[in-house]
Nucleic acid binder design. Structure first.
Lengths: 201, 201, 201, 201
DNA sequence: TATGAATGAGCATTCATTCAT
DNA sequence: CATGAATGAATGCTCATTCAT
């Protein structure tokens, strides 16, 4: 009986094996050879499970984002106020820990590829990501409205916040003078000033 | 004595000559040879005026943006309402004319390079662009406040709008499902709902 | 499973294939493309076995010298007198046959590279060559001493002779007026005059 | 009246101006542009006085060697013993002062060029250098013979010593393991052991 | 005489992908 | 299933030299 290999699982396995690699050397310097060596398989074998080098990168980034999604859901579980939850939502751009910086840089390089080519897989994947985060944001805001924290129009700003977060990431990536933390705090505070229901004393 | 050329001017001249080229074949496929041929000069001559291939690209993009800045200032001159001016500000992402699409695509490719490398010139240039547009936006909003169109807190949203516009561009570049026009209209309308001074009937 | 090649052997094979090439066109005009064509392999394949163009040159010269070493040991086998053996030792600079001239010229070009760069491989290789020839020379002289042909102090001149031979090569390479044969004969005769044990009549 | 320029003198002047340049950046990295700038003249003007880039290098090296010749004659003026004078003759290879190291390295690069091309000027120049040093060496040795320091056959070793010195230089340039000082001392001492007239006690 | 703008040939190297075994 | 040997297209940059002014 021949060994039955679960292709989808092996894709994941290879991606997991190369997960760190992409942080260490960056996407640009990632070669198929290095991937094969890191995953302890032959170069040719890579092509049994991936269509192209980009496909590998895609799978690895996919993995990272999936992990990030899980973490995100976990992280806002015990957060009470809507504003705080929104700040958690911005963690990806605001957190300067080594761990998150690696993630952020990988995403920057990934973005560079997405912008220079026209990869359908990648674009679809982006759509999914956007949907995930928009859904999360809507849940956060709707909870806030239900709790009488936020005015009902607040729900209209979900997409705007999502887009603002993207712009924030882009700013951080392209403008060294830009103070991401100060700017985002100011924006969110000002926005909440307008959409929060003032508590009576 | 040989003729003395104005180096800075010739840089511009070469950039102008190659200006269309970058739209036609894209930044990625731009080669120094093609630039030289298009500008009707020798390949070596290019290097008398540019330090590297990137330097050429940089100068051309510079040229495009400069033109865009001039056009922008011109275009809002006769616009009356603040909201309309802000929409003009978003023209770069909203206008789907052939002309603007070319510009937008070049910027996408340029962004791809900026994100994948660490070019100081390019980053400085980005800083300058951001400063320009932030200044313009502040002028627009401040005028609106002065004209009693907008509430005084509106000025706090300038940077936020700038960042939102960047996010909008990124969305348009990476997510085919995204309807830029609808989204931005909704966001701006909702925001103005909050920052506009309601006129009495 | 694909065939497994002996990397070290293939390196040699490629070097052998390009061995003549270096004589024909010289080191300076040697290009990787020409090497690949001559060896009937792809340009990329070259880089599977060599680190750089210099590495190829190095391997070819290595090959030549190795052959020369073997020939040298063979050639002095049946030579009786120490002086004659020393003249064999000088064969590389004295022999004007087409074959040896090719070798000498290749060495000249190789030397030119060694002198202009700081290649560790090449320097180590030079050390090994010097060790080989010094050892050979010591054997020759020691045999002469053991056979009562030479005075015991003769052994002290081994390194000197080695160095003299290098100087002789350099003279031949840089000074067209120089008569290598006459000069070396004179020097060796004069030296042997001093270190030979005079036979009683 | 037009300015009469002594071509030969201007050649020297330019060479003098670029004299240090060759030490600083090395022959390989010397460009005609840099020479022109250093000499405060136009690039085209260089070609009024020099036939080629090599011609410039040649003139500079010429200058260095001329200076060295003068120094050499000066330096042995007050040296008494023949052996000591011979050691002065070897100063070029033995002196590790910064000054002499610069000179030695420039000569190494110059040699690299001489070995890779077939420049008649350079070869002729080498002949002259060899003649100069051979003459000096003959004077030294002849003086030793006249002073009853050396045996009459010693004169026969002049050319040999010259060639040995060349070999010594080549060794130093190509073999990092080689101890120039130890080797040359041993050789000269051993040789003088044979050619010196032993003083009676 | 002096200049400096213009030139363009020439070449090493990388690496994703294929396919014979 | 697995492999790794073979491939070759594609391109930025230097710099000695010329020659119009």
């Amino acid at each position: 009986m021949p060994k039955i290999v679960n292709k989808e699982q092996k894709r994941k396995d290879i991606a997991i094996a190369c997960s760190e690699l992409i942080h260490e050397i960056g996407i640009k310097k990632l070669t198929v050879s290095k991937c094969a060596k890191t995953a302890n398989i032959g170069k040719g074998t890579i092509y049994e499970y991936f269509e192209s080098k980009e496909d590998i990168i895609f799978e690895i980034i996919n993995l990272h984002i999936e992990q990030y999604h899980t973490q995100f859901i976990q992280s806002i579980k015990n957060v009470k106020s809507s504003k705080e939850k929104v700040f958690h939502f911005f963690k990806f751009v605001l957190d300067d820990s080594i761990e998150n910086t690696k993630l952020f840089n990988s995403y920057r390089e990934y973005l560079s590829i997405v912008l220079s080519e026209d990869n359908v897989n990648m674009k679809n994947f982006n759509v999914n990501c956007d949907v995930f985060f928009k859904t999360q944001l809507e849940k956060i805001i709707q909870d806030g409205i239900d709790n009488k924290e936020l005015i009902s129009q607040a729900i209209e700003f979900c997409e705007g916040l999502l887009i603002y977060e993207k712009g924030l990431a882009l700013m951080k990536m392209t403008n060294n003078d830009f103070d991401t933390k100060v700017s985002s705090k100011k924006f969110i505070n000002n926005l909440f000033e307008l959409i929060e229901i003032k508590k009576e004393k």
